[in-house]
Each structure stands twice: as C-alpha cells, then as structure tokens.
Nucleic acid binder design. Structure first.
Length: 315
DNA sequence: AGCACA
C-alpha cells in the first residue's frame, strides 16, 4: 500500500533529476531486480546495503566489480515489481546521507560528490535469484581478482571454458556505455516473462539445477559476504571512527536493555568493539535499534553492527 | 566485510 510512496522532490532544486520514465509495458515488466551502474570502484557492499535495505520490499543484493575500468554494478532485488519501481524512482534522485556543499538534501543521481559519480538505475533484464536458502543474502562477484588469478595461473590448462565472459586484454576505455543492464544471473528456468511476483517460491524449488551459461557471470562461487552469522548475545560493532572512544560508544549502548559491557579493540586500522548483552533477544533488539547510528566521532557511515562470531567471555 | 578476550 505504501509501496508507491517516495520522498518528494525538493522544490526548485536545480540538481533534481527526474527519474527516467518507467519502462513501458514491453519488457522488464514484472522484473524484481534493479540494475545499478555508475558506482565507484571502491564502493563497499555496506554502502549499497544502506542505500537499498531501507526501501520497502528490499530482498537481496548482488554487487559485481566488473574489472573494466572502475565500473561497478549492483543488482538489487525486491519482493515485487512495484517495490523495485518505487525504489528506483526514489533512489534515482534521493541519495540518503549525501549532500551538496550547500547542504542540499537531495542530490539527484550523484553518488559521491567528490568524484561526481552518478548512479544509473534501471530495471534489470531479468530478476536476480537469491542464493538458495534463507536469510539476507549479499553476494559479491569480483572479476578483477578472477582475471588476475587467471593470468597468474596461466600454465594451468585444466579449466575448459569455465565461467567468465569475454575478457578483452586491456579494454580499459572501450565500452563505457553500459547501454543496458547485463543480466545478473541466468534464470534457472527460463520463466522471466511470467507475472510471478513471489520469487522466493519458485527459486527455492530446484536446488543445484544447472543450466548452460554462455556469457553470464558465474554464480556458483561461495559467498564472500557473511550476513549469515548465527545470533549471538555479543555484538560486533564496526565502522567506528578513528577517534571513537569506549566511553562514547558505551553511552549509546548502555541505553539498550540487557547491555552488559563493552570492549574495544584496535587492530592497526579502524577500531572495532564487542558489546555483550544478557541474551540474544536483547542483543538483537539493540542491533536493530542502533544499526547505522552515526556517532559524533563517525567519519564514514553509521555503526555497522553484527552478531559476534563468539560470545564474550564471562567476567 | 574489519571478530578479542579466555
């Protein structure tokens, strides 16, 4: 019902860019996945996550480093077509947390004001398939690494036409157009034209079924991202600013029911913290409540909170 | 995308 709602455009904002008109009723009708281009090469999965996860109907995301220049694309899927369209309309001109120097709240399709990179969002050619199973799934495909590994492993002739698509030797500046959305994944059963709006139902039906894939990207590699850490009464807190202190973080955490104690660790780079709670229920509630919280010391986004991989020792 | 302490 509220799926079609989105933030209104800023009145008189010269930076406002109207979203491309939704595709006519030809193709891509019923597609659940958005194709996102124009991302900087150093974009982090969590940045994509923050852009889309709060959109109504968000389901899962695939981030792909294409290896061509600094092109990074994402395939973001929603539970139904309307939700995908709504998110596309909204995010084509609303980038939360990104402002112009004059504090303009809405920034069109500019993703990073420093670089001027602009997001380009459209419906994908086909719906992405969530990796079998459940849970919020984030997948990352890094073709830059794959090419390097392949080159270094040149002597090995064991892999006969495995997965990759055509890799030009050094086609750096060649094709920029991204004149369309490459398809994120082969739909395992070629049913992309039906009006099904409940993707989870069909996709979980045929585990392990493989199909030919000509130039589609490989989808059989293990997940790189672990958003499937089992619940734990201890939370892992990352994305803290350099200057974040234990006191500052504890001030926020201590307001959460069931909070026990906090430990911070600095391993050279950014500090991380472990926050212990009485039980999983309270740690989960605290994670939900504080996810993305921006502290005064934050120099990037807000707090990134996950379940810790092991419970804090009793003291 | 970074997980220690016993």
């Amino acid at each position: 019902m509220s799926l079609s709602h989105h933030l209104p455009p800023p009145p008189g904002d010269p930076y406002y860019v109207y979203a491309p008109h939704p595709y006519p009723d030809t193709q891509r009708q019923g597609v659940l996945t958005l194709f996102v281009a124009g991302l900087p090469d150093d974009v982090k999965p969590r940045e994509i996550h923050k852009l889309f996860s709060s959109r109504p109907g968000f389901d899962h995301c695939l981030l792909e480093y294409t290896g061509r220049g600094n092109q990074v694309v994402a395939f973001v899927s929603f539970v139904n077509h309307q939700a995908a369209l709504s998110a596309m309309s909204a995010l084509n001109y609303v980038i939360p947390g990104v402002k112009y120097p004059d504090h303009r709240e809405y920034s069109g399709t500019v993703f990073d004001p420093d670089t001027g990179d602009r997001l380009h969002i459209e419906l994908a050619k086909s719906s992405s398939r969530k990796r079998h199973g459940d849970g919020g799934v984030y997948r990352v495909v890094d073709k830059r690494l794959k090419r390097k590994e392949r080159a270094a492993d040149h002597e090995n002739a064991g892999d006969g036409g495995n997965d990759d698509d055509a890799w030009g030797e050094d086609d750096n500046g060649g094709n920029d157009g991204d004149g369309g959305s490459d398809e994120p994944l082969d739909t395992e059963n070629d049913d992309s034209d039906e009006k099904n709006e409940l993707p989870a139902e069909r996709s979980s039906g045929q585990p392990g079924l493989k199909q030919h894939r000509g130039q589609s990207l490989s989808d059989d590699q293990p997940d790189k991202l672990s958003s499937d850490i089992p619940p734990c009464s201890t939370l892992f807190v990352a994305n803290l600013g350099h200057s974040c202190t234990e006191e500052e973080l504890k001030e926020v955490l201590s307001k959460q029911p069931g909070f026990h104690l906090l430990k911070m660790r600095r391993r050279g780079g950014m500090p991380v913290a472990f926050a212990d709670f009485t039980d999983i229920e309270s740690s989960t509630a605290a994670m939900d409540a504080l996810q993305g919280t921006v502290l005064a010391s934050s120099d990037a986004d807000g707090l990134q909170i996950e379940y810790a991989r092991s419970k804090m020792r009793k003291s």
